[in-house]
Write a protein that binds this DNA or RNA. Structure first.
Lengths: 376, 376
DNA sequence: TAAAATAGCAAAACCGGTTTCATAATCAGC
DNA sequence: GCTGATTATGAAACCGGTTTTGCTATTTTA
């Protein structure tokens, strides 16, 4: 107890001593701080100091809560004027840290350079921009391990929501996101065991209708060239094809190409496939880049499109419009997909829809008929 | 002085009173905090509390400064073990706020869905990933006003560096970035009045060599189809063409197409152009999408490639490899460009190179000869 | 006319990290 | 036995916002 007693007894002297030291330090600090004249960005503290107001007051005014917090019009005007003059931009990092919202969303696709994904990215960005969001993109390259790591990294950055084309094998991580109340919208393909928002194409109808159309054009030997992939969009496309073939009593013929093939290998495989099945009169390609390889193969074999063989590609491509002949496609409405995708996510982000309520949006593809198919 | 004196006199009692109140509050706070059992993420504070250490100590250990700060191996091990068990991920926002580094870079291109840009984006992402960076992309759509706003938004988010394909008219903003010591690498095109890092193609040589090649193949009437744009990459391509034509004593012929054209309009303009100049025996297209329109035009006119007319496109495209005939291209080495681009930026970000020292990297294009050109 | 309500703003706590400074304990040297 | 250096760690300031709480002066109500 003695030291405490000593303290008490000499309280005033001690305080006085400290006060002088403190003043001295203040002076020095001011001296030092003024010196560098750095072009440091204006902070809310600077504004508060310069105007001799509390920073809370400034914060309220800047966030449009002046009325609510009963701050005088006079002061409000003064602050707004000052901010406008100085061109103050609040630090988003600080804002994010305190609010917990980053206004960033993650776009995780298979490969950003793909025609389909880069176009979705473009449309999404426009929508995000309008709503004050920024997009971080990443490519999963269909690697579950890489994807898991990406999710970890993005969680550390506290992005507000996720748009993902999931590779199989990341069910646990998606579930973790959901159970932590982070909005996730799956896209293009889904994970069968996971209940969450999804936006995608009616792949089944796409190939089904394509087969129907070819059949009407008197094609009988219709093959499907697809990827050896168990992703839903691929299995659906195949299912649609098989169902339509069965419905018309035709025997299906499917070539499955490895995902890891380079273009040359795929072309070779197509060439052999077509040679081995000389009776073929039509091919449906399950993706646009498979179609590109297929076209090359057909060209190498000197077959005529559509006389010898009719073609329909899943997913449109700029090239299909200018190739000779032009190539028919089962087209995904890119802007509509992006729109639905963003709306679904935004509804969750802005709590217009409860997190638990899932929505599935299935967009209908459009069969765009061009020169590569006979009209019925 | 009286109240102060009163305070001093009753100091101990007051303290005791406060102590009890404090303890009571602590208890309540604990009660309340425990109740929700939220799955709130582990913070460095939680770790410090649970292990009864200061958070500074934890921070040092986690940042590999244990040795430097002479923290005992024992404690270090204990903390690391705990962190590993609980799977702690530090909050990047907090980290960024205090360090001033976000480990994010901005990729600002003309349009992310373009073949060229989306491929650059893909390569860049891979490099960024390896180095712990994330990329925010945005499309300028060549609109200086939009671009200015984008820069403002990204500055507020404190991205560490910028990779930009600049539209003309944002000189001031770029200068502002530079003078605030933010690394900026311009790319694909540059702003003549601004001294900063740049990575781009030798556009001049690209068209120059293309003309040379065509001339060697006995082509005399060589036209250039380009954009009516004053961006450097375009003016350079045109300059290379004009210089080569002059060198060979040939009279140049240039069609300038508006940037805002839709595909149909461009095709029409090409058709008219070719019709109006029936003597044409070769065309160089200044971009790959112009070439696509041009090919369509030529196909519509039933001209034979390369018999009637030879073709070379600036910037390769997947389609050029499969079109019949295949299309020759002045190819930009995408991975090399991305590599140099990222290296230039990273050198600045990691202070391997001083901010003021600018580097210009000019990549040589590769003339890829395919079916659309006669061999000399 | 005193008590209660409200206007108007300041102060402080908080978000989750990093970094500087302080302190206590031990040990070497004079 | 006192001083000074070293070791090992804790406390606190800071980054720049948001939000809760607190305080005073005035106005309204009983």
């Amino acid at each position: 107890m003695l030291p405490l007693y000593f303290l008490l007894k000499n309280f005033r002297q001690i305080i006085t001593g400290f006060a002088f030291v403190y003043l001295g330090l203040l002076y020095l600090a001011a001296k030092i701080k003024k010196e560098p004249s750095m072009n440091k960005k204006l902070s809310i503290n600077d504004i508060a100091n310069e105007l001799h107001v509390a920073k809370s007051t400034v914060s309220f005014i800047l966030n449009g809560k002046a009325k609510e917090k009963r701050i005088s019009d006079e002061l409000t005007e003064k602050v707004l004027q000052f901010v406008k003059e100085k061109g103050y931009q609040p630090n988003q990092l600080a804002k994010s840290l305190s609010t917990g919202k980053t206004k960033m969303i993650c776009l995780m696709v298979e490969k950003i350079s793909d025609y389909f994904f880069s176009h979705i990215a473009f449309h999404l960005e426009a929508l995000a921009y309008k709503n004050g969001y920024k997009i971080i993109y990443c490519s999963t390259e269909n690697d579950p391990e890489k994807t898991k790591e990406l999710i970890t990294l993005l969680r550390a950055r506290h992005v507000d929501g996720y748009i993902i084309t999931p590779p199989v094998g990341i069910e646990k991580e998606i579930r973790a996101l959901i159970s932590d109340n982070l909005p996730v919208v799956l896209f293009d393909r889904y994970l069968p065991n996971i209940t969450t928002d999804y936006v995608g194409l009616d792949n089944y109808n796409g190939t089904f209708d394509a087969v129907e159309y070819l059949v009407k054009g008197s094609r009988k030997k219709i093959a499907l060239v697809t990827l050896s992939s168990d992703q839903t969009q691929m299995t659906e496309r195949q299912a649609g094809y098989l169902a339509a073939m069965e419905e018309h009593g035709l025997s299906p013929l499917v070539l499955r190409v490895s995902f890891e093939n380079d273009t040359e290998t795929t072309v070779e495989q197509c060439v052999r496939f077509i040679k081995d099945h000389s009776e073929l009169d039509a091919i449906i390609f399950a993706t646009n880049y498979l179609a590109l390889s297929g076209i090359k193969a057909i060209s190498d074999l000197s077959l005529k499109i559509p006389t010898d063989i009719s073609l329909i590609a899943f997913d449109d491509h700029d090239v299909f419009k200018i190739y000779n002949p032009t190539i028919s496609a089962i087209s995904q409405p890119l802007d509509e997909l992006a729109k639905q995708l963003f709306k679904t996510l935004l509804d969750k982000l802005e709590n217009k829809v409860r997190l638990k309520d899932v929505s599935k949006v299935i967009i209908q593809p459009e069969l765009i008929l061009r020169g590569s198919t006979h009209s019925p």
